[in-house]
Each structure stands twice: as C-alpha cells, then as structure tokens.
Design a protein around this nucleic acid. Structure first.
Length: 555
RNA sequence: UGCCUGAUGGUGUAAAGGUAGCACAGCAGUUUUUGGUACUGUUAGUCUUGGUUCGAAUCCAGGUCGGGUAACCA
C-alpha cells in the first residue's frame, strides 16, 4: 500500500466531474499553441498537464494550433512544435488547427448577428478605445451598435468578400458597454486582414480573434476541460458567453499559474528577439530555454517530465529555482550516462618508473557504476598522461585530495601514483608533473595496501584525441529577466558560452553518437552537438556535476 | 482606480476543522577507485487583525501585500 499522491486542483475538478457523471465521465483536453515561435520549458508544463490528464483519466488530448493570426504564424513553427511534443514523449489523438474551423466560425458569427448579438463597427481602433471607457467609467455605445440585422449581415458578407481594407471595419459582439470586465465591452470578434495564411492561403481576408476562435474550437472538439494560464481568467466570461449564446458544447475553462524559472525568460516575443538579433545561435541554441535548446544541450525528456511533475500545478504565481531542473536532470543522467574521461585544461603527468618496454597497456573501465549491464570498456594507459591542471598544486592545503609534491592519488581505473617532481615554465605555469606509480596497485587487483584520499581522471597522451568542448552558463545575469527594466542585451551573461577548442578525450569517445549521454568523470554530463563531425568533435556540457570541493574552496 | 486572482520555511508544493508534511536548496556527517552517486541527521514556514469553535493554515469579516486585466495579439 503506497500513500496516494495528493491531487492538484484541476485533478480535483476532474474527479468531481467524473463522480457527477459530467459528459458521462469523459475527459478531453487539448494543447493549443500558436505557431508563432518555438516551444519553451514553460510550455512543457502545459503539455505534461494536458497530455498527462488525458492519459490519467483515459481520455484524449488533441494538438490544436491556434492559428488565427496569419501575420505571425509560420509552417516552420508548426513543424518544430510537433517535433518537440513528440520528443517530450507525448502523442496527440488528433492534429487540428483553428483554421480548420474558419467556415464554422464564420457561421457562428452569422448566427450571432442574426440573434442581434453582433454588429459591424466602422470606427477605427482608436475611436473604439475612446468609447470603451475606463475601468472606473462605463463605456458608451457606438453609433454602429444600433444597426439592424440585415445591414450587419450585408456588411459582414462584404467584409468577407474583401470589399474593405484592413482596419476599416470589425465585427463586434454586442454585450455590455458598461460591463465591469473590460473584455465584455463589445469585444472585437472578427477583423479584416488581407494576409495569406499558412494553411488557408488566400481563402479568407477576415480572421476571428482569439476569443471567438479558442472557445468555439474547444467546443467543436468537445473539449471537456480547457486548461490555460492565469492571464486568461478575464476571458472566461466571454468564453462562457459565446458558448451560451451559440448553444454549443459547454467546454469549461480552468486556469493555472504558468511556470516561471529563475534566470530564465519565457516570453516567446523576447526569445524571438534573442534569435533575430543574433544574441544566440538560433531557437535551439543550447542556452535557450526552448525545448529544442534543451534537447540540443543534452537534457532528456524524462528529466523534463519529472521536473514538471515535481513543480506541481496551482494558481499562485511561482518562481522555480533552476536547481530543481538541474536536480531532475542529474538524477536521470546519473542513471544512464556512459562514464568517459576527458581533460579540459591539460598538463602532462609523466610516470618516471613506468617500464620502458611497455608501449601500451589496456585497462578495463566500467561504463556506468550505477548500471552493471552497461559493461566495461578498454582504456589505454601509458607513461605519459594528460591530467587536469586543477588536479595539481605546488602548495596544497590540508584538505586537498589531489596531486602535489609528495602526494598520492589514484588514477581512475588505473594505478596509484606519487608525485616526486614537477616542472614550471618562465611564467610559473606548471608544465609537467612527475610521478612514480605502484605496479601492484592496479585497479581491481590492488595488493599494495596503499590508501589514498583522492582519485583523478586522465587520458593517455599517446591515445588522446582532440575535441571542442562547449561550456554553458546561465544566459541572464538577473534572477527575473522578464521583470527587468534593462534592455535584453544588458542583462545577458557575457560568459554564457565558454569554448574549449582542444580538450583531450579518451579514444572510446570517437564512436559517440548523437543520442549518447556521457558523464565525463568529475566534470559533468556531456553530449555530442548537432554540428559535430568526425574530423571535429564537439561536445556540449549539459550540466556540471555537483561540486562540493568548489563550494568548500570558495570559503 | 474598477474588476478578477492569490498569499504555508530561501524555492516549490501538501494537509478538505484535529500532530504543519514532502521535494529542491542550505548545513553537518557516513560510505565511496568520480570531492559524483547512495545513505543519515539537521536548520527553517501558515501575511495581519478580529470573529466562529473544545480545536483554525483551513470557515467568516476587515486590512496588508503580490499578480493579472483595460490589443483589429494569443
């Protein structure tokens, strides 16, 4: 018997509905992106919620593109969105487009006109704004509000037929110019745009507004629970008004708080700016909070799903610490990543007592201590090795468990060595570390009885290959970039990308494939970048390992 | 300013009138051929003022603070 996980407020609503046999207990959700940009980590919360709910309650979840504004929407975005959702591990039951419903939506508008609930407005948007009133003062009726049904029908038909220029007329719902909710003061529901649409081409020159498309689309698809973010709360009145007046399937809208994450930007508009102004390489730049950026960076869908599960669903504004995503990422990567060795900032370690007649020695090294099934690899060893510059100190402090004059360490999967000498250049930089090794301390066959505090990673000089390694840091310097008054470029972290052109990697990495996840021992998790080629391998650091030494060292 | 929302450790999120719990982060320790992992312990919280009640994070009233909204965007 395991403790039942508590329900979030949406699950509570759904379970109550099922209990009350609403729609015979059927649950249908949808994920409704506008194809005007790439999906980001905030969308994954919505994706996990909508698809997750459908799965949990044996219902269905549609993918529906909210493509009612042809000026901003493109096929490229449609394709990327589909790829991202599938990569995250979800499959929609139907692929729909709001533009599929343009005929029906037009008919709905006509219905409203016939009921005397919509009218054609001649005023410009500025004039309309003036008549709209303010939150404290009621609006006033436009002269067009009293047009009769026939005239409205005629005018709307002409709008549709392309007789009017953009911006000259709109169709408005006739609700209440004094309503407390400004959105209900005769909202625009159709506007003229002589713009080619990515799916319907030039078939239409009038397009429905969000408020006249989204809810009706939900209704057409018989979405039972239409889940959106908090900023749509004021729209719920209109959502329900349309359903009531049109007498169509009563979808219900529920709102949850969108994901905010520290040092991360979730605005599609601002992310587009980063792309357009070339602050990043593209939508899938590994520093971007887009799903495609995370994918390229080496994140796993499992870790993102786990993250979405952990952050929960509620109505209060939140700011999730990036460390939670890091935790989910490391947790998964630790289980699956193949262990390899790479040296980012190499200095040479010479084993002075290594037998001259041995030209090459192969050791057996585990691929993943968390997963015995992952097996072992053959690891070449020799008398000259690359080790990390930070793993040697001339004057080591007490708690330094690495190399220094007279100090001993184990070379991972190999032997214990003791430093007896080192060389420096004129600048005082260490160039070589000289050690003696203990042949009887061989990994797995250690009979030396020597105990060492530290183990370091290494790569055999004779067998090492070069690779470019890209280290990433947060893109922004401020915790809440969305709230910053500064310009985007002024809050960008200048050190968000650090390229190491010639790191030394062990030869097993030559066979790396794009889908492999690696842990470079003691450094972090890495994956091949999409631009990596055989002649020039490029690895992205997905995330570093927790580093309690770095923390202690700081103090 | 109207309307709508919300308020629990540093950050998230539970507790549906009955012991404020879990996770991340932090701190301390154990184990370790990764200063990783694993494991153990630990710091820290109900916005405020009243009321109802044997009993309030929870119900009621007032206040305070936060967020949303006032596009021919979604």
């Amino acid at each position: 018997m395991s403790e039942e996980k508590s329900l979030n407020f949406i699950e509570e609503i759904i379970e109550k509905d099922i209990e009350n046999n609403v729609h015979n207990g059927w649950v249908q959700t949808r994920f409704p992106p506008e194809p005007n940009g790439y999906l980001h980590i905030g969308h994954s919360k919505s994706i996990c919620l909508n698809f997750g709910l459908a799965k949990k309650y044996y219902g269905k979840c549609n993918l529906r593109f909210d493509d009612t504004n042809p000026e901003k929407e493109e096929v490229e975005y449609v394709e990327s969105i589909k790829e991202d959702i599938q990569w995250l591990g979800f499959q929609w039951d139907n692929e729909f487009y709001a533009s599929d419903y343009f005929d029906k939506l037009y008919d709905f508008a006509v219905t409203l006109i016939k009921k005397g609930l919509a009218y054609v407005e001649d005023a410009s948007s500025e004039e309309m704004a003036k008549l709209k009133g303010t939150p404290t003062a009621p609006g006033s009726d436009s002269p067009c509000r009293s047009r009769n049904v026939e005239e409205n029908l005629d005018l709307f038909t002409r709008m549709k037929n392309g007789e009017y220029a953009d911006g000259t007329r709109v169709l408005r719902a006739k609700i209440d110019m004094a309503h407390d909710n400004m959105i209900m003061r005769d909202p625009v529901i159709y506007r003229i745009k002589h713009t080619e649409h990515h799916r319907t081409g030039n078939a239409w020159c009038i397009y429905p507004m969000y408020d006249f498309a989204h809810g009706q689309s939900d209704s057409i698809e018989e979405i039972t629970h239409s889940i959106c973010t908090l900023e749509f709360i004021p729209h719920r009145d209109l959502y329900n008004w349309c359903i009531e007046k049109l007498e169509i399937f009563p979808s219900r809208q529920y709102e949850f708080a969108r994901l905010n994450m520290s040092y991360t930007l979730m605005s599609k508009r601002k992310l587009l700016t980063l792309v357009n102004e070339k602050f990043v390489e593209g939508w899938d730049d590994p520093r971007m909070p887009t799903i495609s950026g995370f994918r390229r960076r080496g994140y796993t869908p499992e870790s993102i799903r786990e993250f979405c599960d952990k952050i929960g669903v509620a109505k209060r504004d939140n700011m999730i610490d990036t460390s939670l995503l890091d935790f989910c990422l490391r947790d998964h990567l630790n289980q699956i990543a193949l262990r390899r060795m790479a040296v980012l900032d190499p200095i040479k370690l010479v084993i002075t007592n290594y037998p001259a007649h041995i030209t090459e020695e192969f050791l057996e090294a585990e691929n993943n201590p968390e997963d015995i099934e992952a097996g072992y690899r053959s690891l070449p060893f020799g008398n000259e090795l690359w080790i990390e510059r930070t793993d040697f100190m001339e004057d080591a402090p007490k708690k330094y468990f690495r190399l220094g004059p007279g100090l001993q360490v184990r070379l991972k999967s190999a032997y214990i060595v003791e430093c007896h000498d080192f060389k420096k250049d004129e600048a005082g930089q260490i160039t070589e570390v000289h050690c003696r090794y203990f042949p009887e301390s061989k990994s797995g066959h250690d009979t030396s009885g020597i105990k060492v505090k530290g183990t370091i990673h290494w790569v055999s000089c004779a067998h090492a290959k070069d690779a470019e390694i890209r280290l990433y840091d947060r893109l922004f310097t401020v915790e809440n970039p969305a709230a910053s008054e500064e310009e985007l470029k002024d809050i960008l972290n200048p050190d968000s990308l650090h390229i190491i052109p010639n790191a030394k990697i062990e030869p097993a990495l030559l066979n790396a494939s794009r889908t492999d996840k690696f842990q470079f021992l003691r450094l972090g998790y890495f994956c091949l970048d999409k631009n990596s080629v055989v002649d020039k391998l490029i690895f992205n650091r997905t995330v570093g390992l927790k580093d309690s030494w770095a923390k202690e060292n700081k103090q």
